[in-house]
Write a protein that binds this DNA or RNA. Structure first.
Lengths: 137, 137
DNA sequence: TGATCCAATGATACGGGGTCGCAATGCGAC
DNA sequence: GTCGCATTGCGACCCCGTATCATTGGATCA
């Protein structure tokens, strides 16, 4: 159960309304990647469109992040670092672990630079099985 | 106008039928990433479902690859290398350039290994502006 | 050459995920 | 208080892709 930086909403001129607070509370109660549908089920009093809009907003503020699965489906997750990062996505239990690595970012920048490409974003997702599912210590 | 290795279809036990040939011919005529809809418009006599099925098939055979855009939409592209690679995706002209880089793959494997994660796939997409759009030599 | 059989096709309905339009609501500033 | 505008809820809608299923047609073998 992590805490969500609601201040960031108000700082950027958005209102912290009751429905938004309800979505944020629901997020704080989950520690696993979720779909909008799952989230929406937990919030029967909140309109589906509002859940979508709120998640979109939180995504723009880097409070939640999109997690693209291998098959193209999307889940969302509350970003723990709030900074740019990558994901280790377990295909067995569905867990998602954030990581960041300067060497990886460096390799990405190097490739862009070699191609005279002006980089303004990137994504990197790793798919496989997590340590827990492999029953490693 | 690149040539498509149609042999790979028959080698794997699939029939090289007229509709499939039509899709493949259309691909050979495009050198830009495309959506199924765009492709389907060029093939008014081919059923939409067949275009989807054929692209899915070609994707499994690594003849075309999925290109996930920054906003989550998907385009497809005929894979030039036929091997695993990453993409430089220009947000201005929409061009997609393949590249592969052992250093990048190495960094990815390193991170998986550190997390005791058993890697069985990964993706890396770079978003920005290509050299042409930047008007570089 | 024809008969046979199964993969492939096309039409269409369906489903998941997300957005739009719009009237109603409710913050926050004055 | 009240005014204005951001936000909400509802429902219709859209996009992309898949499932269903009757029909077609290609490869194989006699």
């Amino acid at each position: 159960m992590s805490s969500i930086p609601t201040g960031r909403l108000e700082d950027t001129g958005y209102r912290l309304t009751a429905p938004r607070r309800a979505v944020i509370d629901a997020l704080a109660r989950t520690d696993r990647p979720f779909t909008i549908e799952e989230l929406s089920e937990q919030l029967p009093n909140i309109g589906r469109a509002t859940v979508f809009r709120t998640i979109k907003l939180l995504h723009e503020l880097d409070i939640v992040c999109r997690v693209p699965l291998e098959d193209g489906r999307i889940r969302y997750e509350t970003s723990h670092s709030g900074r740019h990062h990558h994901h280790l996505i377990c295909g067995e239990c569905g867990s998602v672990t954030e990581f960041s690595d300067p060497a990886l970012d460096e390799a990405i920048e190097q490739n862009a630079s070699t191609a005279s490409f002006e980089l303004d974003g990137h994504s990197a997702e790793l798919y496989g099985r997590c340590a827990t599912c492999r029953r490693l210590p």
